[in-house]
Amino acid sequence: MRSRKLYWTSILMALTAMAVLTVAPGTVAAAGKPEKVTVVYGGSSWIGHYPVWVGIEKGLFKKRGLGVLFQSFYASSGRMGSLVAGDLDVACTGSISAIALMAAGNKGFMAFGTPDSYATVEGVIAREKIKRLEDLKGKKLAVPFASSAHVLVLDLLEQIRLDPEKDLTLVNLQVNEMPAAMASGEIDACAAWTPNFNMLLKMPGNHLLADDTQFSLYKKYQLGPGPDLLVVRKEFAEKYPNTSRLFVEGYFEAVDMLINQPKESAEVLVKLTNLSMEDQMAVQKDIKWIRGAEQKALMLQPGQFVKGMQLLAEFLVKHKQIDAAPAVKDWIAADMVP
């Protein structure tokens, strides 16, 4: 009798223990408690980083128990290098750098979304005397090499059959150095992105010659020369799935806020961009934000954005910027796509 009682007690205890062991982690997961409370994010004043800035300023990450450390990088390459070196956890990057890193065979990062679509905040700005792209022949056009603006310029020149090596002089210049170079007359035109793009357009005598809407892949697939890509360090995503998920939630709540409350968002963004409120609102008007609910269609099924990225990789190979096109779909973190 006693042994029977002991038998059933043991069974009950074992079942209870099993239930605790199996249910407990699930309960934590359901509660969504972050395993790591600080996320190190790689950003800059570029539009792709607006959601994180808004999320930090409006407490959208904080309410999920996350602290986000915003680290500024001047170029996407530096940001991506730091990400795969383990210094950053999450970043938004221009896809040229991401594709270049994929082409180098690095598997240390994954992509999980694209926050925006922009076509009118990057382009070629010229001095008054240059009316059409064809007028660039024999002129000096400044562009930061290895950037989305560089890809745009190579494509535009190809469309009008100008040889970048022979027909004009491409000057490798960073966007922040362009206003001074345009003002001094050392260059005749430049390819830049916001916020310098807006500053250059405001300078007397400057006008817009072409923007991303004239990029050949944009005409066919609505894809700019360097669309923004959200990336995560693979090890971080695997080790801290809840933290990653909560970050994505906070990020896309910030995207919703940028869509629904543009003025409130602009008020906090001017601290990041140093633009006037008026200019900040104008920049935001030109951006099409992509909500979390739209991400699956772009990144997974049917994955139109990823297909576009693949075409961009092939474009880079054609223009001898990378050696071989990587299979972009192999770098998509399906679990993290909202």
């Binding site: 991506m80 270049a100 090499f145 150095e177």
Partner: peptide, 21 residues
């Protein structure tokens, strides 16, 4: 580093941009 489109310094910096170590 600035405004160059040829030279070994440019080659190194451009290689860095495209992760061509």
């Amino acid at each position: 580093l600035v405004a160059a489109r040829e030279g070994l310094g440019f080659m190194i910096m451009n290689g860095k941009e495209y992760f061509q170590t």
